[in-house]
Structure formats: C-alpha cells, structure tokens
Design a protein around this nucleic acid. Structure first.
Ligand SMILES: [Mn+2]
Ligand SMILES: [Mn+2]
Ligand SMILES: [Zn+2]
Ligand SMILES: [Zn+2]
Lengths: 147, 147
DNA sequence: TCTCTAGATAGGAATTGTTCTTATATAGGA
DNA sequence: TCCTATATAAGAACAATTCCTATCTAGAGA
C-alpha cells in the first residue's frame, strides 16, 4: 500500500488548520499529530494504532485524547469512520468520495471508486432523508489468498 | 415497523432445521429460541436485546450462548451482521438480498432493495475476490425528523 | 427405551474498546 | 504577559464480547 503523496498530506493538514480557524477549535500539538497520522496513511488505522504511533513523538499522549480527537475530526468532516466486520472502528482521512473493499480474513481495507453512485429506489425517501451512501465490498484480499 | 409474516417466520425456522441437519449442528432449545427472536423481528436487534427477550422464556440463558449462537447462525448464513455507526452489532434474519438505511440519530435500521446491484469498477478484482456487496445509506429517519 | 459422548450451555471471570472523572496544562485572545 | 475557556493526562469506570471450566444434553447407536 503506497503512502499518501506529501503534497496531498499537506493539503489535508491545511484543511485541518482552516477547520480549526473556522470553528474556533484550538490547534493543539496533539490534534496535529493525531490527524497527521491518519492523513499520511492509506491503511485506515484504528484508534489503538494511531495511539501507538503518536506516542512515539508524544510519549504522554492518552487514549482519551486520541478517541476524543478522532471524534472531533469526524464531526468536522476531516476523517470518516469506516465500518468493518470487527468491532474496532477504523479511520480514513481521504476526503474524496470513495468506497471500501474489506478483507474478511485479515481486516485490511482498500479504497475503490465508483464512476456513478448506485441509483436508489423510489421508496427510499419514505425511510428518511439520506445523507450519505456507503458501498462496502467484502471478500478475501490478494495478500490473504496467496498465503 | 410491521412484524414478519408468520408464514415467513416458519420458512426461516425451517431453514434453521435444514441447516442443522445438513451441518450436523445440534438443534438445541437455545438455538431455536435465539433464532426465532431474530427471525420474527424486522428491527435488527442487537445481542443484548435478543438476550433479554430469550431470557423471558429461558431464564438461565447466558450471554455467551447468545453471542456464540449468533456467530454460528451468521456462519451458516442464516443471519447477517449489519454494520452501524455505533459499536454494537445488529442482526438480521431476512435472507433476501437487500440493503440498509441507518438512522444516525436513533440507530434504527430499515431495509430497502436495489433493482440492480451497483456496477463495480474494473480494478476491483485487483483488490481481492469479492464475496458480498453492502450498500448502506445513512441519514435521519422520519421518526427522528418529526420529533 | 437406555446409554454414551461429542458437542453445547451456564455462570462468572477476563479481555478489549471506549468513555468518564478530575486535577493540571495550555492556546490564543486581551 | 496574563487570563481563562478549552484541552489534556492518567487511570478508573463502563460496555460489549469472549474465555474458562464444570455441568448438561441432543441425538446416535445398542
Ligand atoms: Mn478509505
Ligand atoms: Mn435487514
Ligand atoms: Zn486479507
Ligand atoms: Zn431515527
């Protein structure tokens, strides 16, 4: 899984700075480092992974701060929660509209893109007002199949 | 949310009996009651809800049995796990190919059906072998919007 | 019908992911 | 620089799920 291009990471960090300015949310070192970890990774890390990585730079970071910050970032629309079969939430800083292939054996997640969103049935507005649509394809990833 | 038609419930229970016979899995009272709760409900209950309902008939049922049984039923393809924003897993005994509208406010889940599955991009087979496709629409349900 | 046993359950402890509590620290404005 | 609303650290608490082990039982076979 190739890393996110440095220029793209910079754009994402810039979005964080803007969002902080706009919402009055403070730009703390912790928030910067937590977001950077998500922003520079394609692997949809979970909270514990992020915690461990940030801790290498900030040894006193707490679980609470990681969870709280990820929730804030999600609220600001800077990261998405991705639903997986396992219970642990995984996060994603890719802001482009995209979908996920989830390996049911190893839990890895890969992005894919749809040319056109699936057309929803007429009745859908009877259920409620749709705000987002997520397509999740589940299967066995190449890595797992070759091992 | 209208209940599942009794004839449909019977069909589902019949599938359980068949599956037990075919796989050599024993048909215990616990399995029957746990599956019946899921089979007769449209509300995608979670494990704790199922536990409480079954406990009214079987006061000594344990959490472990409910979780273990739901996992077995999932493995047999008799129920599906539905991913929700919250951490708690929800289950569904509707065997027809369908998708979900998830209310991000109250957590309620409603079924909807697509006329045709969304066409996946060419590159998808590079990620792995797809086994299932889930479309999840998130938004605010009517119930919540009117309150 | 009775017996036998692999497989299943009950009850409670343990584990894991997440949130809460509270004392302390700090970002950013005045 | 000072002030204070906001954020953090540390660890306890909580909630969902799984593990452990003694006990039970479904269903096959005598
Ligand atoms: Mn992604
Ligand atoms: Mn359903
Ligand atoms: Zn895999
Ligand atoms: Zn609702």
């Amino acid at each position: 899984m190739k890393p996110v291009a440095p220029s793209e990471v910079e754009q994402r960090l810039e979005r964080l700075r803007l969002a902080c300015r706009n919402t009055g949310m403070r730009m703390t070192h912790q928030r910067l480092e937590i977001f950077r970890e998500v922003a520079q990774s394609n692997e949809h890390p979970d909270a514990e992974t992020i915690f461990k990585r940030v801790r290498e730079k900030m040894p006193t970071i707490s679980h609470d701060t990681v969870y709280r910050t990820l929730a804030s970032l999600e609220e600001m629309g800077l990261v998405d929660r991705v639903e997986t079969m396992a219970g642990r939430a995984r996060y994603d800083a890719n802001p482009d509209c995209h979908h996920h292939f989830v390996c049911t054996r190893c839990g890895s997640i890969a992005d894919f893109y749809l040319d056109q969103a699936p057309s929803l049935p007429e009745g859908i507005e009877n259920l409620g007002s749709a705000e987002s649509l997520h397509v999740q394809v589940r299967g066995i990833c190449h890595n797992c199949k070759n091992n």
